[in-house]
Amino acid sequence: MTKAMWPPGETQHEHQELRGFASFDDPESLSYVDSNGKPNFVLIQQTDEFRTLRRRLTTFVFPMTVLFLSSYLTFVLLSAYARDLVSTKVIGVINLGILLGLGQFVVSILITLGYSRYAKRRLDPQRTLIAEKTGVEE
């Protein structure tokens, strides 16, 4: 199956490492699961697929965290230190501060939806790929 198809580049040493574990089975079935059925997490961690997943996850969640925290703190700091600015009336008696606060609601919804979409398109398929490659189930 897919297990034998090593991408060029990482093939050599990983393949050899795997060989070390394979005393009885033929190389086709030797895998990321040891003889007791326990997944070999160190090997899985070193695959390109896992690294890609980790990179995709962190390059989304950390910048987004910085984004929403700075947008929230901007609102908080403006409310504390720029009272005159946020007291500016915009619609009727509704002032800029209330609108900025409601803006935080909008930011939250957008990031929530964005992450769901990203996870469905970029993260979950990659997880399935790793599960298929390693033969380790959820």
Binding site: P39, F41, V42, Q45, F50, L57, T134, E137, E138
Partner: peptide
């Protein structure tokens, strides 16, 4: 180290969580 690898793979890839 082995536990740390297991934790990372489980946390990020969701593999082996029922084991």
């Amino acid at each position: 180290a082995a536990k740390a690898a297991e934790m990372e793979v489980r946390a990020i890839a969701g593999l082996g969580t029922k084991a």
